[in-house]
Amino acid sequence: MCLAIPAKIISIDDNIAEVEIAGVTRKVSLDLAPEAKLDDYVLVHAGFAIQVIDEEEALKTLELFKEILEHEVS
């Protein structure tokens, strides 16, 4: 029901951030995620950052994936 994609904040001007996804940049509002900082990854939905991505959790999920792989291989 809601498309949102991870994008990296490359600059902030007041409550507007410029975000980048694979070389594509767009201005998004930080009104809903004012805690977002430069270099953070945020979920972008309809022109707004709606959540800061937890990189540690993302890494954990990936680690878990890797374990699945290794486990299956061994």
Partner: peptide, 8 residues
Amino acid sequence: GFETTSPT
């Protein structure tokens, strides 16, 4: 929209 969109 739902909770994702309504705050916007």
